[in-house]
Write a protein that binds this DNA or RNA. Structure first.
Lengths: 130, 130
DNA sequence: ATTGACGTTTACGTAAACGTCAACTTAAAC
DNA sequence: GTTTAAGTTGACGTTTACGTAAACGTCAAT
C-alpha cells in the first residue's frame, strides 16, 4: 500500500516548527521515523503524532504528557493493570479539559469586560484630544 | 473601608502553591502587596491577580502573558495608541481561546476513542486470563 | 568541480519557572 | 528568656524545551 511519507522539512514547513524541534521530539520518544541510510523518513502516523504533540502544547501539556497520550493510542501492549491505569489517565485528562473549558469561559468574560473598559477609556482620551 | 487582607501563607494555602512561588510572582511584577515592616500584606486585588495568573497557567500562558492580561484591567494609564494596542491584544487572546476550544473538543473526541480501544483491550485480556 | 540546499550528529547555551538551601529578623508561645 | 514558627533576602540548582554552532555527508544544478 506504500502510504505517504514526509521529509523532515515537509513536516517543519507544514507545522511551522524547526527541524531541530522535530529531531528533539524524536529523541524524547514522541516520533519514530524510519531511516533510509541516515535520513529520516516520516510516515503518516508520525505526522499524526506530531499534530497531537502540537495540539497538546497549545493546551499547555508537557512533552511527557503528550507522550502518554500517544501511548494511549495502541493499548495492545498492556496487561490488565496497565490498561486500568490507562483508563484512569484518560479520565484524569477529561477532568483537566473540563477545567480548561471553564477557565476559557471565565477568561472570555473577562476579555469582554476588559474590552469595554478599554473602549470607554478610548472615548475619554479622544474627548481630551479634541 | 479596610478591605480584607491576606498573609503570604493564606494565599499559598488557598491556591496550593508555595510561598516561594508567590514571592517570585511579585518579583516578576504580577503582584504588588504592601509592606508592614518587612512583611507582605496582600489585598483582595492581589488575590484576584494571583487567581488570574494561575488560571492563565492552566491555559498554558507564560507569566509575561498573564501580566499583560492583568495590565488590561485598568486601561486608564493609556494614550490612544496604547489603548488600541490593548484592543488588539484582547482580540488576539480571543483567537487563541477559540483555538484552544477547538483543541479541547478534538482531544475529548480522541479520549473517547482511546477509552473504547482500551475497554476492548481489557475484554480480550480478561478472556485470556480465564 | 564547486556552490547551495538539505540532511546528519554532538555539544554546549539559554529562557522560564520555580525549588532549595543558607543566613538572618521578628513575633508569638511556653 | 529562649525556643519555635513564620517571615525575609540572596544565591545557586534544576527541569523543560528547545536554539545555536561546529563539522560533516549527499545530491542536484551551474
Amino acid at each position: 500500500m506504500a502510504s505517504k511519507t514526509y521529509t523532515i522539512r515537509d513536516l517543519a514547513r507544514e507545522f511551522d516548527i524547526t527541524t531541530r524541534t522535530i529531531r528533539f521530539y524524536e529523541s524524547e520518544g514522541l516520533l519514530a521515523p524510519r531511516r533510509e541510510g541516515q535520513t529520516r523518513i516520516y510516515s503518516e502516523k508520525d505526522r499524526v503524532n506530531l499534530k497531537l504533540v502540537l495540539r497538546g502544547k497549545r493546551l499547555g501539556l508537557t512533552l511527557a504528557e503528550s507522550r502518554e497520550l500517544i501511548e494511549m493510542y495502541d493499548p495492545e501492549h498492556g496487561n490488565v493493570a496497565q490498561l486500568q491505569r490507562l483508563l484512569e489517565k484518560i479520565s484524569e485528562r477529561r477532568v483537566m479539559l473540563e477545567q480548561q473549558l471553564a477557565d476559557i469561559r471565565l477568561m472570555q468574560t473577562e476579555l469582554d469586560a476588559a474590552e469595554e473598559r478599554c473602549l470607554n477609556a478610548l472615548q475619554k482620551a479622544r474627548q481630551k484630544e479634541s
